[in-house]
Design a protein around this nucleic acid. Structure first.
Length: 552
RNA sequence: UGGGCCGUCGCCAAGCGGUUAAGGCACCGGGUUUUGAUCCCGGCAUUCGGAGGUUCGAAUCCUCCCGGCCCAGCCA
């Protein structure tokens, strides 16, 4: 399953393979990823993107990117541009870039065909009346008084709707199916509504816009899609998808197949709710590194390869599955472990003075950039009399099995010498402000003689290191399913973003480029922030911590 | 209560009438290690929501029951 050469099967791949074997679509596999450009893509969309583009790639097919832009007013080119960027960033190339609005003319003509066949009619009932006549889940609906208008009258009204002669809400075009159907989608669904707003592409050309259920199947057919993959909530819409294509002489009749949407613990993948987080400024924007959006994850330092691996690992089924965050984090670590050069950074510094070294001591050490891969090369690291270590790596009252620095104890400075804590300096409040240590000059690249020193801690030269800001991110919510809470606000993790503003990083990090990724040894994987990082003022985001098996 | 769908290890997920019921994550050991990281090795479902039935043989077929999800936008 983890082997890209041999991906685990899923029921959709099985269907595609069966179709290929039977010659159903003449050996063609054509899929599409059809977002509405009304928001940013999130990791749930990534699942769909990987599925659609992945199926196409695996079976020598093609995949289109199609914007489902049938609801002007909610949609914008800004979103469309962002979606294109996200899909490309994830590593996919679409065959054709399409818009549902490309088919507005054909859709209109097909609607006239439906009217002529007596399969569609203009209803002049109000929205409320339509709702009342629809019935309920358990009771059938009743037929509209306008249901039996003549073809001529319907054609005339529909044309005048198109010409903008009526106000919004005055009429709708409905399919004439079955008001008593157990499937509410078949109770004379709306095909067109009047909307007098400017469309992102067609401007004011139209005053009627087709509904999703009518548009999607026709668009799929126009593009000769073979397998139209969508999420489970559209299962009930499939009979309508098929009804429309059965009534019309479209070039093809694609097969709609539904799979379960992604649910990821400790986050939330509802576009509506995500918009709220942005608007209410619970996060800094769509690309806040805590957001489950593609752009947010990118800024967080998640990689395209890791996200693709994640989508492969979680599988495709019809089960309502909740994926643990650990799966995602493992994918990120696996990729970054292999690809990230190592560096040292101290987030919460305590000064350490090596008292048995001259004040101007400055020794250049050579560090491997990757412990398992020599091709990463080496870098110089300055070791000086004054260094910084992380506050967590010193304790006067250590917990059991603590392997770091304690008063009178020894610890290895990574890649350097073994030091011993001789004296603890505190301020008036009793806070530790400095440690005075001695070093064993015979431990550079060698084990100390006659004793074992188990602990290894990272450090940065206090005089040669560079100041930096580091942002520590954590899960956005305190509970696995935030939508189950009374209010989102009550379950937001207040500690999900902690800014450490007086960090010390090794000099080699001053030249990092935005989006460049590193492992800060013993701390985790970090990325130079794509917006705020400057070479004179480095800013890093913690992508994910290292796996930590030490019970805290 | 109408219609549609789903139930295989803590979390995912293969499996499609004959397998000791894959694999991943998590977890628990053990080894290597100047990152408590990585890597390596080992452990982890006599059982497939439950009960009946069909069959030489059932997670796979049938029946009933139990649990869960979706649908009443002129949203997608």
């Amino acid at each position: 399953m983890n082997n890209p050469e041999n991906p685990s099967n899923n029921f959709i791949r099985n269907i595609v393979e069966d179709d290929l074997a039977s010659g159903k679509n003449g050996q063609r596999v054509v899929t599409r990823f059809p977002p509405e450009p009304n928001g940013y893509l999130h990791i749930g969309h990534a699942k769909s993107i990987c599925l659609n583009f992945g199926i196409a790639a695996q079976y020598n097919g093609t995949c289109n990117l199609r914007f489902d832009d049938t609801n002007p007013g909610k949609e914008s080119d800004e979103y469309a541009q962002a979606i294109k960027e996200d899909v490309q960033w994830l590593g996919f190339e679409w065959n054709e870039l399409k818009h549902a609005s490309d088919y507005f003319d054909e859709l209109y003509d097909y609607a006239r065909e439906l009217i002529k066949k007596g399969k569609a009619y203009v209803d002049s009932s109000s929205a409320e009346e339509v709702r009342e006549m629809r019935g309920t889940l358990t009771e059938p609906g009743i037929e509209s008084p306008h249901r039996n208008r003549s073809v001529e009258q319907n054609l005339d009204l529909f044309e005048r709707m198109k010409n903008g002669e009526f106000e919004e809400g005055a009429h709708i075009l409905r399919a004439k199916i079955d008001m008593a159907s157990g499937n509410i989608n078949m109770r004379d669904p709306t095909l067109y509504r009047i909307r007098k707003v400017t469309h992102m592409r067609t401007g004011d050309d139209w005053s009627i816009y087709p509904m999703y259920d009518y548009t999607h199947c026709v668009s799929d057919a126009m593009e000769n899609i073979t397998h139209s993959l969508c999420t489970l909530e559209f299962e009930d819409h499939r009979p309508l998808y098929d009804w429309v294509l059965d009534e019309l002489q479209t070039p093809a009749h694609p097969q709609q197949i539904e799979f379960a949407r992604l649910s990821l613990e400790y986050t939330m993948l509802s576009k509506r709710q995500l918009i709220k987080l942005v608007e209410e400024k619970q996060v800094s924007g769509w690309d806040d590194p805590r957001m489950p959006t593609i752009t947010g994850m990118r800024r967080r330092g998640y990689t395209p390869a890791a996200l693709r691996d994640f989508c492969e690992r979680i599988g495709i089924t019809k089960n309502d599955a909740w994926i643990e965050m650990a799966v995602l984090e493992t994918c990120i670590r696996d990729d970054l472990n292999e690809k990230s050069p190592r560096r040292m950074a101290v987030l919460d510094p305590i000064k350490v003075v090596i008292t048995d070294l001259p004040e101007d001591h400055n020794e250049t050490l050579s560090f491997a950039n990757h412990p398992q891969n020599e091709s990463f090369g080496r870098r110089p690291v300055a070791f000086t009399q004054q260094i910084m270590i992380d506050r967590d790596d010193f304790s006067e009252d250590p917990p059991p099995k603590y392997q770091r620095l304690v008063p009178g104890g020894e610890v290895r400075l990574r890649g350097s010498y073994v030091i011993k804590c001789e004296e603890v300096i505190k301020d008036e409040q009793g806070n530790v402000i400095e440690l005075r240590c001695s070093h064993d000059a015979n431990t550079l690249g060698k084990k100390p003689e006659g004793r074992k020193v188990k602990g290894v801690i990272h450090w940065v030269s206090a005089t040669e290191g560079v100041k930096a800001e580091v942002r520590l991110y954590d899960r956005l919510f305190t509970i696995a399913n935030p939508l189950s809470a009374d209010s989102l606000e009550s379950v937001i993790n207040k500690d999900s973003c902690i800014t450490m503003s007086s960090c010390f990083v090794e000099a080699a990090l001053a030249d990092a480029q935005p989006e460049e990724q590193f492992q800060f040894e013993r701390l985790g994987y970090f990325v130079a922030d794509r917006r705020d990082h400057k070479s004179g003022a480095p800013v890093f985001n913690r992508t994910v911590t290292l796996r930590d098996t030490w019970a805290k």
